[in-house]
Design a protein around this nucleic acid. Sequence first.
DNA 1: TGTTGTATACTTGTCATATAAGATTACAAG
DNA 2: CTTGTAATCTTATATGACAAGTATACAACA
Lengths: 242, 242
Amino acid sequence: MNDVTIFNSIKTDKLGAQIGRQLMRAIVDGRFQVGERLPSEHELASTFNRSRIAVRDALSGLAARGIITVRQGQGSTINPISMWNTLDPEVFVVVYGDKAFDQLLEMRQIVEPESAFLAAQRITDEQVEKLRPLSVLNEDDTVDQHVERDTSFHLEIARAAQNGVLLTMISSISILLRESRSCTFAVPGEISRGHKWHQTILAAIEARDAQAARIAMHGHLDQVGQALDKWRIEHEDNRMAF
Amino acid sequence: MNDVTIFNSIKTDKLGAQIGRQLMRAIVDGRFQVGERLPSEHELASTFNRSRIAVRDALSGLAARGIITVRQGQGSTINPISMWNTLDPEVFVVVYGDKAFDQLLEMRQIVEPESAFLAAQRITDEQVEKLRPLSVLNEDDTVDQHVERDTSFHLEIARAAQNGVLLTMISSISILLRESRSCTFAVPGEISRGHKWHQTILAAIEARDAQAARIAMHGHLDQVGQALDKWRIEHEDNRMAF
DNA sequence: TGTTGTATACTTGTCATATAAGATTACAAG
DNA sequence: CTTGTAATCTTATATGACAAGTATACAACA
């Protein structure tokens, strides 16, 4: 009855999702060209040796993510990548792999300082109280707890900015950022550095000093970028082994 | 055989999408609480007087957008709004209605100047050639053509910024912005003002002057905001009629 | 009292089969 | 060259069935 997770969760994916992933992988790998037609549902059912229902599940999943367009009587055609919903985590990991950290960080550096800026102008007293405990990073906690706390802190700031679109964007990024955060928190001394920056940001927001909040958030993200670089240098030899 | 579209396209939505929209509307209207269970597929099939297949289509659509979680043996439960993919156009229009223009514009003012900044630094000669014709706004074209051209121009700049995440964000916004653009282009003189700003932005990017590109994009969006205000004043009386 | 097994009823997941309806093609009729 | 039509692809929807996960109540047991 302890909190530690010993066993991995048993994978219980629906058939449609599994088939969908295989199809997505095939599309991303270029086995089907943009504009090309996929095999018919009947054919796919045969090749995967599953029912048409399962195949339809998979196809409707791909269609919902903008990857294909299904039309009655005509079949399924592959959409240009510009139509894909690459912010969907399922799509993102396949399209970008694990090496999108730089792009994500660059995006954060564009959006999050402004998020802090607006938050400092618009945050309510209630939201300040909610934000304060989230700013603490305790050395004794586990990596997962750090990731959780850090994510919540940045999300709460976005919420305080009182712009639903901004909040949605940042939370989309947050989901994709989980792995990156695990890496940076593994760098020695990063927790206390992160903690100090969080306090600086919090103080600026509490004081309703928008400019200071923007600058502090920018500095914080610079520090995150440096941590990411350090982590990479430390793990470069591992990658060379492959 | 002319280009002008006289007739509206016949709506040919799939049953699942229609049922899904009705369910989404019911959820947003608060007829079901967060965490609550939806009626079973069988019950829903009865109430909508459709097959279970159609209902399952609808539910899997909602699940793909993060609105509900479907679990075997347990039914479908409604997720907290933080899990909803509100960037999905289908979800966005229901959640935010038509009055999210301000939030969208604020988001653009955060993201797009940086998009132009990065584009000026990273654009290739080929991309400049693609961008140039898109910058032209011709007074003789239809509103739809303006919207199309304008959207492409801003998207191409985002593409030139060479950051997939940024591009995806801006294209997500673009889809939601279609209606807003139709409004602003209806304001007299707005086409030529937009044209001039586009030329300014293009020139800055062509000259690889990142600072100038950022400033120009910011000015352009300020002008769009003013146009939106003008449009609102002009249409205020119409809204009072309701 | 508290735990364990079990039956039961409810849920979604998957399947096979059939029919409706849109899309495409070829081709005959005018 | 256009129009109508049949054939044949495709997906859309319906029906009925069974498998399998989940929750609950309750008996059996310690």
